[in-house]
Each structure stands twice: as structure tokens, then as C-alpha cells.
Simulated scan of single mutants.
Amino acid sequence: SCLAAQDFGDTNRPYAPLEALLPAVEFRLLLNKAVEIANATPLAEFANNSQSMENSKSESRSHIINELRKIFEEPGKTIGNRRPLQLAVKDKDSTRTSSSTGLRQLKLSGGAVRTACNSYTSNLRFGESYVLTANKSDRKRMIREDRLPGIKQVIVADLDLRDLYRNLVQTKIEDIQAEVFQEDPDFFEVRSLLTEANQAFNRWFELVRVQDILEAERLLAPLFLQTHGQIPHSS
């Protein structure tokens, strides 16, 4: 595409109230934690085929799968352990305590991630202009032929791209859920799916203002530490 909706730089991107972003950021932190767990043992260690190492590898893989089961929701089950998310959210006008993100999801599922992404997207605020990212010759041609898109077209294209990445994240996470809770899960398939889900989620977050992501992570850090013990590195 030759269009980038309203991207004059990070501060001028479409944006939503910070509380609308919190659920998606929390799920991203959970996904990053899952990736760290799965990658804790280098693949090279699984290549040793001695009998003693085979037993060790099997135990290591089982431990990793069990840890991942603590993060992902089992398909067909609903989350019973939830609690309200109360955070002080600052904006230009005030400091307020927000519970509008509803109940904290403590486990990852494709459907929950979809809901979190939709919560942010449905609250997006767009401006009255956009940047055309076509090359110089294409820009001249589009202007000459009066083919510049209207702002509504650009907004639709922006939302479609967000939905594309959201759908990809949802699908990959649902695939992980299905595999992790198999009787004999394929560890390497899980590891690959985690990488793909993480890459797709990163693409979705590339459309979000960086300063909003950092502020959401700062607000979530104390609760995440309390629940999960450490903040994962972005991957």
C-alpha cells in the first residue's frame, strides 16, 4: 500500500485513551513471558541424542509445557480467577482511577486477545489529515490524476490492517492453546507458534504510539510482578 494513515511521526498517529490499551499490553506481556519460557533451553541442547540427555530433554520439555499451561487458557474452559484492574491513568486533563478495562484476564486465549485489540481499535481517534507515503513520481501522478484518497478511505485501510494483524495473533494463539493442551504436545511446534504469534502481535503494536505502550507497561508492571514474578523482555 502507498498510504500510511496520519503518520506524521509517533505523536500524531491515531490514538485511544490509555485505559483502552491496557488489556492488549497485558496480553503482550503474557505472550512475551511464554516466549521466554519456551526459549529458556537452547535448541542445541535438544540435539544431543544420548540416552541420559534424552531423559533430561523429555523432562525439560514437559516442564516447559506445564509452565505454558499456566499462561494459556485451556480450550473450552472459562477463566474463573479474575479481579478488577484499578490503575491511575494520566491524560492531558486529569489523573483518574480507571476500571474501564474491566476484569484482568490472567490467562491467554485467542478470543480474549481479540476482545482486547477490539477494545483499543473501537476507541481510536483519527485526525483530519494523513501522510501519503508513495514515492515522488507516484505522488505527482496521483495528484495530477486527482486520485488522492479521502480521509475515510485512509481510516478504513488503517483499521483493516489492524484487524488483519489481530486475526493473525488470534489464530496463532488458538493454535498454541490447542497444541499445549494435547496429551502429547509437539514442543517444537509450540515453540514455532509462539514465535509467529509474537511477531504478529508486534506488527499490531507497531501501529500504536510508542509512548502509550511504554506508559501502559509502566502502569501494569506492579500488578504483573505481583502475579508473575518478573517483567519479560520485549521480543
Rank of each mutant, 00 (worst) to 15 (best):
M142D: 06
T115Y: 02
A34G: 14
N118K: 15
A38M: 08
R218W: 09
G9F: 06
L18D: 03
S58F: 09
P222A: 10
E217V: 03
I79Q: 15
K152S: 12
T41W: 09
Q199S: 11
K92N: 10
R162Q: 14
R162Y: 03
P17I: 03
F72Y: 15
P185M: 10
E145F: 02
E196K: 11
D163W: 08
R209G: 04
L194W: 10
F181A: 08
F46E: 07
L219V: 07
D175S: 15
K152T: 12
L108P: 01
Q226H: 06
N55I: 07
T41C: 05
S100M: 02
T97S: 10
S62F: 09
A216H: 01
T97H: 11
Q51C: 03
L29D: 06
R162M: 08
I213R: 14
L132M: 07
E45L: 13
M142Q: 07
L193N: 03
R125E: 14
N135C: 14
I213G: 00
Y15L: 09
L21S: 04
P17D: 10
L30Q: 14
A24D: 01
Q177M: 11
A40V: 05
E36K: 13
A44M: 04
E215K: 15
F224R: 00
S99R: 06
E179N: 09
A16T: 08
A34K: 02
Q170N: 13
D163V: 07
T78R: 15
N32R: 12
R13S: 00
N198E: 14
I64R: 00
K90V: 13
K90M: 11
E59C: 01
R61Y: 04
R104P: 02
L87H: 09
D212H: 08
S192Y: 07
N135M: 06
R82C: 02
E189I: 05
A47R: 13
